[in-house]
Each structure stands twice: as C-alpha cells, then as structure tokens.
C-alpha cells in the first residue's frame, strides 16, 4: 500500500492523511495500524494538561525546541474543544508553535474533541500510533484546557505533565480529587507572577501528603515565555521515563492503558451498533419523546433499546 510506504519513509503528507483517516474511522487506516502495531511503543508519549490559558502550548513549544536541539524527532497532537451545537471548532494551538511548523523533524496536528469528553478526542490514541509508526522519538499530547475531572490523558500517556499557574485558588483546590491526582511531573508556569512559589509550595505539600506513592512527583517552576526552567523540566520528564523503566513499571502502566483503550473501543462499537439499529426504525426519537412527556421512564427506555440488538 502506497500510504504505508510513504509513512514509513517519513512523508508528512502521508502521515497527515492517515491521521485524518483515523479521525474519520477509515478502515484502511485502521488495518494499517493493525499491521504495524508491533512496531509502535518506541516513542515516549507525554501528556500536557492544565487549565485553559495556563501556557500548555507555549510550554510545549519550548520543550520541543529543547528536544530538537538534541536532534530528536517530535510529534505534537494539540486538542481543542468542538462545539456541541454545530460540530465546528477553532483549533488555535498552532499559534504558539509557529516556529516549529517548518522544522522537518516536527509534526504538529490539531484535533477537535468531536463530542468526546475527558480532554482528548476519540481518535487521539489512533493518531499517537500513526506518529509512532512515522518514527517520532517523543509524542506530546496537549489536552483541551481542563477543569477538575478531565483525566483521559493519564490513560494515554507514559508521562503526564500537569501545568498549573499562580492565582487559581487556595490549597483546598490542590487536595481535591481529579486532575490533581494524575500528574507525574508538575510545572508551575508563569512563575514570574506574584504567588508562584506559594502555588508551588502548596502543590508540593499536597503531593507529600500521599504516603502510597513510591515516587513523589517533582514540582518545577518555569516561565515558558522567557524560556526559564525548560531544561530542568525536560530533565524531570525524562527522569520519569527512567523511573518507569525500572521494575517493569512502564509495561504495567501501558498494560493498564491498553485495558482502558480496549474497553473504550468496545463501548464505542456497541453504542454505534445500538444507535444504528435504533435510528433505522426511529425508535430513539419515539422513546425520547415518551420519556420527556413522562409516559415512560429512562430505565425502561434503556431496556427497550437494548432489546433491539439482542444483547
């Protein structure tokens, strides 16, 4: 297959086309992944997450430049939200990474979430595999700006970099469940602003309270725009991979990620099967109307719909 050869030769257009095909659930792209899956797993997959406007794209730009100085090939997947109403989106992460556009050793791809919650798009994992086959040494996944519970990234990445900024709340925010639990490395960005060291201290205190960890995630202060603290942060990210490689931790993490991915794929397939079967007979519209008018309850509705596919 022509696309396969071009991808393996490092052709950017082929890589771009295949990512689109994965996004659109194209069978040819899926069978290519099936065939070449055994060649994946070489890239260090780094998830970058944090609140909107925290500096995820700018920091990604700086980290990638630092890796380029070492001659590494890097892929970036930047996810931004899709409108739940129109299906459209504005993908604006490239603005912060324009210098990287022309670098032959960097591939940047923007993705809309296309209805998927959790901070990534449904096709993100497929796109990671394409970039892995394409030959990237490092793959960065930048999530949408997250709130408190978008934790998909921890099931996709080897290392999660949680970006925080000063001034977003007190130490109670830091001990809540959710996104604060998934960071392997923390970075307090915009550390030239007032309150940055207090934020860093609060995060450290929160992390040190957790006695079940055999590794306490480092908390680094950086200022991405001024290129301060980037080398040190990159060293911590690499250090996390070294840590994973000890005692079979990397395989265990990837095993639990694979498990989550498989379950996701099954859920999607079953859901689309159910919806296909029901749409064809207009059952879903009918039942939704009944539930809205209180002529049927949602649990009975669920039973009726599931009956349509003989589960």
């Amino acid at each position: 297959m022509e696309l396969e050869k071009r991808l393996l030769d490092g052709d950017k257009r082929a890589c771009a086309r295949l990512i689109s095909m994965v996004e659109n659930n194209n069978k040819e792209a899926i069978s290519l992944i099936k065939k070449l899956y055994k060649h994946t797993g070489n890239a260090h997959v780094i998830g970058i997450t944090g609140p909107p406007g925290g500096g995820k794209s700018t920091l990604t730009d700086k980290l990638v430049k630092s890796l380029r100085d070492e001659g590494k090939k890097v892929g970036i997947i930047a996810v931004d939200p899709t409108s739940p109403f129109t299906g459209g989106s504005i993908l604006g992460d490239r603005i912060r990474m324009n210098d990287l556009s022309l670098d032959p050793g960097v591939f940047i791809r923007s993705m809309g979430t296309r209805g998927h919650l959790g901070g990534l798009s449904k096709a993100t994992q497929g796109a990671v595999k394409i970039l892995d086959i394409y030959g990237c040494d490092y793959i960065f996944i930048e999530t949408v700006g997250v709130g408190q519970s978008e934790v998909d990234i921890v099931r996709t990445a080897d290392t999660v970099l949680m970006i925080m900024v000063p001034g977003l709340g007190d130490d109670i925010q830091a001990i809540k469940a959710g996104t604060m639990e998934i960071g392997d490395v923390f970075a307090v960005n915009k550390s030239d602003l007032f309150g940055a060291s207090k934020t860093a201290r609060e995060i450290k205190t929160m992390l040190e309270m957790n006695h079940n960890m055999d590794r306490i995630p480092p908390v680094m202060q950086v200022t991405a725009l001024k290129n301060e603290g980037i080398k040190e942060l990159l060293n911590e990210i690499k250090g996390h991979m070294e840590y994973l490689k000890e005692n079979d931790r990397l395989n265990k993490r990837r095993e639990s990620n694979a498990r989550a991915e498989i379950i996701n794929l099954i859920e999607e397939e079953i859901l689309s099967l159910i919806l296909r079967k029901n749409e064809s007979v207009g059952v879903l519209d009918d039942i939704s109307q009944k539930v809205a008018l209180r002529n049927m309850d949602p649990y009975t509705a669920k039973d009726e719909i599931l009956r349509a596919i003989d589960l």
């Binding site: 409108s83 129109t86 459209g88 993908l91 604006g92 324009n98 022309l102």
Partner: peptide, 19 residues
C-alpha cells in the same frame, strides 16, 4: 466557519507562505 460546523485551524498573524 466554526458556526457552520467546520474545523478551523487558526495560525495567527505574520505567517510566511512556507509556514
């Protein structure tokens, strides 16, 4: 274009044709 359901990749100001 977003409101028409398209995915718009906005690249920002001062772009070279190559970029």
């Amino acid at each position: 274009l977003r409101d028409a359901g398209m995915e718009v990749i906005y690249t920002g100001l001062r772009q070279t044709p190559e970029q």
